[in-house]
Nucleic acid binder design. Structure first.
Length: 579
RNA sequence: CCGGGUGUAGCGAAGUUUGGUAUCGCGCGUGGUUUGGGACCACGAGACCGCAGGUUCAAGUCCUGUCACCCGGACCA
């Protein structure tokens, strides 16, 4: 490819409205162009990157016996009604009516389609297990896009679905897929991606992992233990806190005029937040009934865990009905009105000498003892993990919090979809059974953006050799002087003939702009041809990551030594990444 | 959906307070001088100032409405 013909523009100004490095560089380097919020077109360099990522994903999916298929983008509402998700999924799924008045959806995931495709053919246990996958456009009408390709509405995703005749078989395959995912991330150049335990959300199922690139621009919060390797998404993370045992004191009602918050209370009573019980009020989405969550005053409620415990959706109660008997600012566990669901976090276990609201404006209780005053209280885990908290696995207080970008996920789905959509097979005994499913996703564009985010400098992306848009860039400086043009043309031709992916800057621009564009386009290797190098009979060979820089000789129009050196370096880098 | 912000040439911005013929830089075209980290000179092309309505002799600027995009949050397979 010649730069003079390459579509797209590169520039040095920081584009407006870009925050993260990957977004800035992808715009500045002519990789992507925004069409609408969360919707992008790709210029050739970006498409070359994503094609290479897709090729690696294909290889690894095929290696674990995946079969590539292709599902439609548009599906009839009836298919989604079979699983019940037509009604349960909110407005992130685009619904529309076609010319015949039929209701349709745009695919945001393809569990339903995967069952529809296979349920008529996989009717015998002898057809199992199998995995099908596709690489295809998804549309999710996200309310809030951000970070360039990090969070978008339209994106390319590899999604895979496996079908099994036993839980054990699913678990074995799940493990194979987890290993394949690690290979994929290592091969595209981000071996630092970690698998974390996650909440299954509305996917259903039980066990699930998310693959996270740890970076400050990430939208997810990850809890990690540096001692034992425990890793979980904040949504699912467990964390243990302990309380010192202190002697019980009598329960006393205290007048606390003007005290509304935990900070107020601490100041008023000269205590720390650890000695308070904090009440957070929610309402069930289904009937608006109140749920009050109590956590130790220094902690926060993990709403995902609360939701899972209650088995229903809840939302924070912003305007509390004055008739409800709930007294914001002084809510406590004693004397709450009927009909309010109360949940205690296990951080309150064994606490005594607690301060809490008295359910009366201007009054709190002191000396509350969980065991004495609330003997029947069930303590469940609904608190957010905290930095320095105790790891639920190894018991050491080494929990650390980080941000992460989710570049992939894997779920054990169980029979949610096969049961609701009546997919069955006959087992060895001739009995009808529901297959057990797993599903496995990777966001291709988000992964490309994540690699850029993880590996770049001020001048541009540092693409790993496996996914770089071009393997080597040739810069012809002062091409109109001496025989630079002839030599550079010959070098370009010989590299191409050798099967090297080369980007040839054949423009008559200044050295500065040529190098800047080369940096932005991120070829890992660079060859410079100039009057200076030609007079010495050499070509300058260097790496984008500055790991080496050397001269390589040529004779006449024979650049075979250069070509060989380039091929060797490419092979070495590919081997290092592919393992 | 809540809160904050921004829409002026392909890109980045000034001008809006106080209405008076559209400004700068990058990029683009032509010619010339240059050339190892985004060169310089000259000339030139390029804008229904997001859109609609209103006020006014006169609107990029004031008023009303609307759309789009960005940021924080909520939400989220």
């Amino acid at each position: 490819m010649k730069v003079s013909q390459l579509l797209g523009m590169r520039f040095k100004e920081k584009p407006a409205g870009c925050e993260s490095a990957n977004h800035i560089l992808m715009i500045r380097g002519g990789y992507i162009k925004q069409v609408a919020s969360g919707i992008f077109s790709f210029y050739p360099p970006m498409r070359r990157v994503t094609r290479k990522i897709e090729a690696i994903i294909r290889e690894e999916m095929d290696r674990i016996d995946g079969q590539e298929v292709l599902f439609p983008v548009v599906m009839p509402a009836s298919l989604w009604q079979e699983s019940g998700r037509y009604d349960s999924i909110g407005s992130e799924m685009v619904r529309f009516t076609d010319r015949n008045g039929a209701k349709n959806v745009l695919g945001m995931t393809h569990e339903e389609a995967s069952v529809q495709l296979t349920r008529d053919t996989a009717t015998s246990y002898q057809n199992y297990p199998f995995m099908i996958y596709q690489i295809q456009t998804k549309f999710r009408d996200e309310p809030r896009c951000r970070g360039g390709l990090i969070r978008v509405r339209e994106f390319t995703m590899k999604d895979a679905y496996s079908f099994h005749t036993s839980q054990e078989d699913l678990e074995r395959y799940y493990q194979r897929c987890l290993e394949a995912y690690h290979r994929i991330f290592a091969r595209v150049g981000v071996p630092e991606v970690v698998a974390v335990q996650s909440d299954s959300g509305m996917m259903g199922g039980s066990v699930s992992h998310e693959f996270m690139l740890l970076t400050d621009i990430g939208e997810d919060t990850i809890v990690l233990c540096d001692s034992c390797g425990y890793r979980a998404n904040m949504e699912a993370a467990e964390c243990i806190v302990t309380n010192e045992s202190v002697p019980e004191q009598p329960l006393t009602k205290v007048a606390t005029p003007g005290v509304k918050t935990i900070e107020d209370l601490c100041q008023f009573a000269h205590i720390t937040a650890l000695q308070t019980a904090k009440a957070v009020v929610y309402q069930r989405n289904c009937d608006d009934s109140y749920v009050i969550a109590f956590v130790r005053g220094d902690l926060e409620v993990n709403e995902t865990k609360l939701r899972n415990h209650l088995g229903c959706e809840v939302h924070p109660a912003l305007d509390i009905d004055p008739e409800s008997g709930i007294c914001p600012g002084s809510i406590g566990p004693l004397g709450l009105p009927e009909g309010v669901t109360v949940v205690f976090d296990r951080s309150l276990k064994g606490c005594s000498m607690l301060y809490c609201g008295a359910n009366e404006d201007g009054y709190h209780y002191g000396g509350l003892s969980m065991e004495r005053d609330l003997p029947g209280a069930e303590l469940v885990d609904i608190a957010k993990a905290v930095s320095g908290g105790i790891c639920p696995v190894c018991g050491k207080p080494h929990l650390r919090i980080s941000r992460g970008v989710e570049v992939g996920n894997i779920f054990q789905l169980g029979t949610k979809y096969t049961k609701s959509m009546e997919m069955t097979y006959l087992d060895e005994k001739g009995e009808r059974q529901y297959p057990i499913m797993g599903c496995y996703g990777i966001g291709v564009g988000r992964l490309a953006a994540s690699v850029c985010e993880a590996h770049h400098d001020d001048y541009g992306p540092l693409w790993p050799m496996t996914i770089a848009p071009w393997q080597v860039g040739v810069c012809a400086l002062h091409r109109n002087k001496g025989d630079v043009q002839a030599k550079a043309d010959a070098l370009y031709a010989q590299l191409q003939a050798a099967g090297v992916e080369v980007l040839y800057d054949d423009r008559t621009v200044s050295a500065g702009s040529m190098f800047s564009d080369a940096d932005l386009l991120g070829a890992p290797l660079r060859l410079v041809v100039s009057p200076k190098t030609c007079s010495k009979g050499v070509v300058e060979f260097s790496a984008r990551d500055k790991s080496f820089r050397k001269d390589i000789s040529f004779t006449g129009d024979d650049f075979s030594a250069v070509v060989e050196a380039v091929k060797a370096e490419i092979a070495a880098r590919m081997a290092a990444l592919n393992g």
